[in-house]
Design a protein around this nucleic acid. Sequence first.
RNA 1: GGCUCCGUCGUCUAGCGGUUUAGGACGCCGCCCUCUCAAGGCGGAGGUCGAGGGUUCGAAUCCCUUCGGAGCUACCA
Length: 531
Amino acid sequence: MAQPTSGVRVRFAPSPTGRLHIGGARTAIYNWAFARATGGTFILLIEDTDPERSTEENVQVILNAMKWLELDWDEGPEVGGEAGPYFQMQRMGTYADALEQLKAAGAAYPCFCTKEELDQKRALAEKTEGGYAGYDRTCRALDEKEAQSRIDAGEPHVWRLAVPENHGPIEFEDAVYGHMSFPAEVMDDMILVRSDGSPTYNFAVVCDDVNMGITHVIRGDDHLSNTPKQVLIYEALGKPVPTFAHLSMILGPDGKKLSKRHGATSVEEYRDRGFLPDAMVNFLALLGWSLDGETTIMSRDVICGNFSLDRVTKKDAVFDETKLSWMNGQYIQKMGASEWVRKSWPWLARAFSEGYPYMHSAIIPTPEPDEPSTEPEPLTEEQWAAFDDDYAAHPAFYEALYPLVAERETSLTECESKLAYMFWGPCVWLDEKSVNKILRKEGARAEEALHACRAVLADEGNAWECAVLEQKCKDLAEPLDMKLRNLLQPLRVAFSGNMVSPPLFESIELLERKDVLARIDACLDIVFGSK
RNA sequence: GGCUCCGUCGUCUAGCGGUUUAGGACGCCGCCCUCUCAAGGCGGAGGUCGAGGGUUCGAAUCCCUUCGGAGCUACCA
């Protein structure tokens, strides 16, 4: 299965164990970007040797995450390729072949020590000798014939790598860490094949990388210490050692390895929280790599066109969600209305559903800032149908919402709360705090302002256009001797229910005159008891 | 314990012996803009480059020591 290796071949090999971890995603991005930058081939290989978790469904989860990030692979599941199959479970034959080769070369030997025996020895060594030095090579001394007869008798055994005696330091080049050297004496006669015949990780990766013609192994830092062991396997196999590139760890805000305790750790979670794939890729690319030290926002094309291993840092990086949010906001500003509508679908549907069918107008208590975020009820089929109908009837309306929130959103989810008022029809939910601060404020003349603005909005002579309505309302300030702020904030509250909202007249323009007037009337009635 | 790696503003980073009074970005503070909130513009605080020794005319950049952090040390991957 020797591959013609012309050019760069890199691979990302995730285990389908549930979700695509942030660290894994970055590894995938670096492999992908490196392949694209060098005109090489990006291969996706599924490490599905754990039968417990490697379900069809979990494989799909990984694939979906890769697709969501828009990391296209040249060879792998669904697209095939000449170096396949791309599932380790389907490559068992290649591992068996490799073992045979090692046996023939005398580079592997059977070991009959049981797990229990080894655990005991390890425990003892840790107590008495101040540390376990690795397998004591008991079975390596076994007579070949004796070993064979025990195998023939069906005695359980594993196959170990016979680390060469007097092997000088094990050295290899790492594109990130530079020249690496490990003393061979501390290398364990590691297990290659387990007693059940399955290959261990270190053996399987080497076989795969050899057979797939991988030229650059770009992977997590946690494999750095595994690398000399793997180099030994390459040597035993008589194969050239690829270039390695180890990526530093991604840490949580507390400086500890990123884990569930830090909150969201999978790309799926970020997707569900309204993050854009472009922002994720841009942000993750910058976690350990830089273009020039200055550029922060960069497109996939720029990343792919300029990615290089020699600008990858060795230092562990803390995952700073604040910066990710900022970056996401930058991408939301640039994405455009139609894409925004398409991607904001779930949250727009929620915003729509809250206002449908229209509820009554009322003052509602201001939510506590430390609200216990409860999982929202999923929308019913009915609600979805109603939303779909509404969108079909007013597609332009939905696109017009984009400029209202584009530069105010840091995540797509925010449109649900920020735009809720746009779906209230003739009703308004008045935020209690806003009512007290704006409408009921002593000496603010809010009621007077509201009546005046209402008159402008009610005047059929005024075109229902943002610029016209805004100008006419602002013209009220002078005769009334009011500050714009005092004049318009009451209108904002009466219309949107809150003292903080997206642009006022731009919003009003998108709704019907009768609904806007109805809201003002409801507000006047509820707050001031006047009509 | 052993092996290995890392250490520049709070965070992501630039820096590869002199062009550096250590640059950019997020965050923070202030000002401007302004009907709110944002966005945007401008400005500011914040690192003496983990510490201590060298080498050198000159070091964040080279060497040594030291401290701190991390990874590996499985019939897990």
